[in-house]
Design a binder for these strands. Sequence first.
DNA 1: GCCAACGTTGGC
DNA 2: GCCAACGTTGGC
Length: 135
Amino acid sequence: MNYWLIKSDPQSYGWEEMKKDGETLWDGVRNYQARNNMKLIKEGELALFYHSNTDKAIMGEVVITKEYYQDPTSDDPRWCAVDLKFAKEYSKPVTLAQIKDDQRLKDILLVRQPRLSVMPIKVSEYDIISKYAQK
DNA sequence: GCCAACGTTGGC
DNA sequence: GCCAACGTTGGC
Protein backbone atom coordinates (compact mmCIF):
# COMPACT_ATOMS: atom_id res chain seq x y z
CA MET A 1 0.00 0.00 0.00
CA ASN A 2 1.43 3.31 -1.07
CA TYR A 3 0.28 6.79 -0.20
CA TRP A 4 0.30 9.76 -2.52
CA LEU A 5 -0.32 13.45 -2.52
CA ILE A 6 -1.96 15.26 -5.37
CA LYS A 7 -2.17 18.99 -5.73
CA SER A 8 -4.93 21.05 -7.14
CA ASP A 9 -5.48 24.70 -7.65
CA PRO A 10 -8.98 25.27 -6.25
CA GLN A 11 -9.63 27.73 -9.05
CA SER A 12 -9.43 24.93 -11.59
CA TYR A 13 -10.75 22.00 -9.56
CA GLY A 14 -11.35 22.28 -5.85
CA TRP A 15 -12.13 20.02 -2.96
CA GLU A 16 -15.73 21.21 -2.93
CA GLU A 17 -16.13 19.96 -6.47
CA MET A 18 -14.41 16.72 -5.57
CA LYS A 19 -16.91 16.17 -2.76
CA LYS A 20 -19.86 17.08 -4.92
CA ASP A 21 -18.77 14.90 -7.84
CA GLY A 22 -17.91 11.97 -5.59
CA GLU A 23 -15.75 10.58 -8.36
CA THR A 24 -13.66 12.26 -10.99
CA LEU A 25 -10.86 11.74 -13.42
CA TRP A 26 -7.52 13.31 -12.70
CA ASP A 27 -6.17 14.58 -15.98
CA GLY A 28 -4.18 17.42 -17.42
CA VAL A 29 -0.87 16.51 -15.80
CA ARG A 30 1.85 17.79 -18.13
CA ASN A 31 4.94 17.16 -16.15
CA TYR A 32 7.10 14.09 -16.59
CA GLN A 33 7.95 13.53 -12.98
CA ALA A 34 4.34 13.86 -11.90
CA ARG A 35 3.32 11.59 -14.76
CA ASN A 36 5.89 8.99 -13.74
CA ASN A 37 4.53 9.03 -10.22
CA MET A 38 1.01 8.75 -11.52
CA LYS A 39 1.89 5.59 -13.40
CA LEU A 40 3.01 3.98 -10.16
CA ILE A 41 -0.34 4.55 -8.44
CA LYS A 42 -2.37 1.40 -8.04
CA GLU A 43 -6.09 1.01 -7.81
CA GLY A 44 -7.25 1.18 -4.19
CA GLU A 45 -4.37 3.33 -2.97
CA LEU A 46 -4.93 6.51 -1.01
CA ALA A 47 -4.02 10.02 -2.01
CA LEU A 48 -4.04 13.21 0.04
CA PHE A 49 -5.81 16.05 -1.69
CA TYR A 50 -3.88 19.30 -1.36
CA HIS A 51 -5.14 22.77 -2.20
CA SER A 52 -2.47 25.10 -3.48
CA ASN A 53 -2.63 28.91 -3.61
CA THR A 54 -5.60 29.85 -1.43
CA ASP A 55 -5.75 27.31 1.38
CA LYS A 56 -2.37 25.69 1.12
CA ALA A 57 -3.72 22.74 3.06
CA ILE A 58 -4.51 19.06 2.73
CA MET A 59 -8.28 18.92 2.66
CA GLY A 60 -8.89 15.20 2.84
CA GLU A 61 -8.31 11.87 1.19
CA VAL A 62 -9.31 10.22 -2.04
CA VAL A 63 -9.03 6.65 -3.27
CA ILE A 64 -7.77 5.68 -6.69
CA THR A 65 -10.48 3.76 -8.51
CA LYS A 66 -8.71 3.32 -11.84
CA GLU A 67 -5.04 3.08 -12.65
CA TYR A 68 -3.42 5.21 -15.32
CA TYR A 69 -4.77 5.29 -18.82
CA GLN A 70 -4.41 7.58 -21.80
CA ASP A 71 -5.34 11.15 -20.87
CA PRO A 72 -8.60 11.85 -22.73
CA THR A 73 -7.74 15.57 -22.84
CA SER A 74 -4.63 14.92 -24.91
CA ASP A 75 -3.83 13.06 -28.12
CA ASP A 76 -0.28 12.73 -26.97
CA PRO A 77 0.32 9.18 -25.72
CA ARG A 78 2.89 10.46 -23.22
CA TRP A 79 0.20 11.77 -20.89
CA CYS A 80 -2.13 9.82 -18.69
CA ALA A 81 -5.01 10.16 -16.24
CA VAL A 82 -6.32 8.23 -13.24
CA ASP A 83 -9.75 8.05 -11.62
CA LEU A 84 -10.36 9.14 -8.03
CA LYS A 85 -13.16 8.80 -5.55
CA PHE A 86 -13.86 10.96 -2.52
CA ALA A 87 -12.85 9.04 0.60
CA LYS A 88 -12.88 11.32 3.61
CA GLU A 89 -12.76 14.92 4.59
CA TYR A 90 -10.41 16.04 7.34
CA SER A 91 -12.17 17.66 10.25
CA LYS A 92 -9.15 19.92 10.34
CA PRO A 93 -7.31 20.54 7.08
CA VAL A 94 -3.57 20.14 7.54
CA THR A 95 -1.86 23.33 6.48
CA LEU A 96 1.44 23.81 4.75
CA ALA A 97 2.54 25.90 7.74
CA GLN A 98 1.92 22.95 10.09
CA ILE A 99 3.84 20.66 7.81
CA LYS A 100 6.74 23.07 7.57
CA ASP A 101 6.79 23.50 11.34
CA ASP A 102 7.10 19.79 11.98
CA GLN A 103 10.71 18.62 11.97
CA ARG A 104 9.61 15.07 11.21
CA LEU A 105 8.10 16.28 7.94
CA LYS A 106 11.07 18.28 6.76
CA ASP A 107 11.87 15.79 3.99
CA ILE A 108 8.35 15.62 2.63
CA LEU A 109 8.40 16.28 -1.10
CA LEU A 110 5.68 18.88 -0.76
CA VAL A 111 8.23 21.12 0.93
CA ARG A 112 11.33 20.00 -0.92
CA GLN A 113 9.83 20.08 -4.37
CA PRO A 114 6.98 22.56 -4.20
CA ARG A 115 6.05 22.44 -7.85
CA LEU A 116 5.54 18.73 -8.22
CA SER A 117 1.84 17.96 -8.52
CA VAL A 118 1.79 14.19 -7.91
CA MET A 119 4.15 12.77 -5.32
CA PRO A 120 4.63 9.74 -3.08
CA ILE A 121 4.15 10.10 0.67
CA LYS A 122 5.89 7.88 3.18
CA VAL A 123 3.78 5.88 5.61
CA SER A 124 5.45 7.69 8.51
CA GLU A 125 4.55 11.02 6.93
CA TYR A 126 1.01 9.91 6.30
CA ASP A 127 0.64 8.88 9.95
CA ILE A 128 1.79 12.28 11.20
CA ILE A 129 -0.50 14.12 8.82
CA SER A 130 -3.56 12.07 9.68
CA LYS A 131 -2.98 12.77 13.37
CA TYR A 132 -2.94 16.50 12.67
CA ALA A 133 -6.16 16.08 10.72
CA GLN A 134 -8.00 14.72 13.75
CA LYS A 135 -6.93 17.36 16.21
C1' DG B 1 0.71 41.13 -7.76
C1' DC B 2 5.43 39.90 -7.38
C1' DC B 3 9.09 36.97 -7.69
C1' DA B 4 11.87 32.73 -7.15
C1' DA B 5 12.31 28.12 -8.66
C1' DC B 6 11.96 24.98 -11.89
C1' DG B 7 10.71 22.61 -16.32
C1' DT B 8 10.57 22.96 -21.24
C1' DT B 9 11.80 24.65 -25.63
C1' DG B 10 14.59 25.88 -29.31
C1' DG B 11 18.79 27.73 -31.44
C1' DC B 12 23.39 26.79 -32.08
C1' DG C 1 24.17 18.06 -26.27
C1' DC C 2 24.43 22.53 -24.12
C1' DC C 3 22.49 26.52 -22.50
C1' DA C 4 19.79 30.76 -22.73
C1' DA C 5 15.17 32.26 -22.97
C1' DC C 6 10.81 31.70 -21.81
C1' DG C 7 6.52 30.02 -19.48
C1' DT C 8 4.28 28.19 -15.45
C1' DT C 9 3.62 27.23 -10.74
C1' DG C 10 2.99 28.40 -6.18
C1' DG C 11 4.32 30.76 -1.84
C1' DC C 12 4.40 35.12 0.19
